[in-house]
Design a protein around this nucleic acid. Structure first.
Lengths: 153, 153
DNA sequence: CCTAGATGCTTGAGGTTGTCAAATACCAAG
DNA sequence: CTTGGTATTTGACAACCTCAAGCATCTAGG
């Protein structure tokens, strides 16, 4: 412990190093693909989070985006200006705006989903066996996380 | 293919879904820890990329940050204003600024490294066996990537 | 030497994201 | 009807980011 610095717990730390590197590369790739669509990362994320089935209040979107409600105003402004999203009125409470995706928005949203679900090159390069193993391990990881912190709110 | 949509290649795609989710959570956690240090993500990243041994030109940092050189000017301005970094002069070419980390910068850099090398909760929650397996698979992934694209510049 | 082009960095304009505090409009309970 | 809470917007301010233009400096051709 004193000589070898941190030998213990090193598997998770090394994994994190690679995880981070792959994530960085992916972020760059995705970012480039999004500019092609004329979308910034937050805009794309907002489009992803919106429910095609049911309109959603601004506040709900802010929560999903982990940012201030006043920030969402601007993001939605730009999306609405391009006709991708509409601010409707919610029934029962005239304060809340019901965010709905327009057909044009759905179209773009589809492309965004495709871009962002595309696996990073590093993962795509793995053997099918490794890919399955990776998926299973990551599935376990998020599973463990969810069962450990279920009462987060 | 027509009925089941995309069944093929789904392992990598599912893996990517989990990968993205873990990455998002980690980004939030790291971001929060960085504000504690009074650092933004780009600033922390810059600090990480600087070489403690050898001063580095602005352009080199811009490359590592994947952004425009003019952007680096501002980021370094703020780091320098806090005494974390110094713009020295490079020998041989009076145009280039040699970026060096100050002792205070090294201190903060250490904390940043620690924060960012901390594995996401999801990964930390895995069994040691899974952690090792994950590390090995990710190591193979970045290895494959590097050997496939060695002549990137 | 000296001049033309290339290179490293900064500056300025302009846009998006982000936060906070204050304003507005509305709901809901006393 | 008044009082307090909630949803959204606005305005001020800061950071990040890109592009185009500018400045100083280097380098190569004549």
């Amino acid at each position: 412990m004193t000589l070898k610095t941190k030998q213990a717990n090193s598997a998770a730390h090394e994994a994190q190093k690679f995880f981070f590197e792959i994530g960085m590369a992916q972020r760059t790739k995705v970012g480039a693909a999004l500019v092609e669509l004329g979308l910034s990362f937050p805009q794309a994320h907002a489009l992803r989070m919106l429910d095609p089935e049911k309109p959603m209040p601004m506040s709900a979107l802010a929560e999903r985006l982990f940012c201030d409600a006043s920030n969402v105003t601007g993001i939605v402004d730009r999306l609405e200006a391009r006709g991708l999203v509409e601010r409707g009125s919610a029934e029962g409470d005239r304060r809340v705006k019901a965010l709905a995706i327009t057909p044009a928005g759905m179209e773009l949203r589809g492309e965004v989903m495709e871009i962002m679900s595309e696996p990073p090159e590093a993962i795509a390069a793995l053997s099918p066996t490794d890919q399955r193993a990776l998926r299973d391990i990551l599935a376990r990881a998020v599973g463990l996380l969810r069962e450990r912190a279920p009462a987060e709110r």
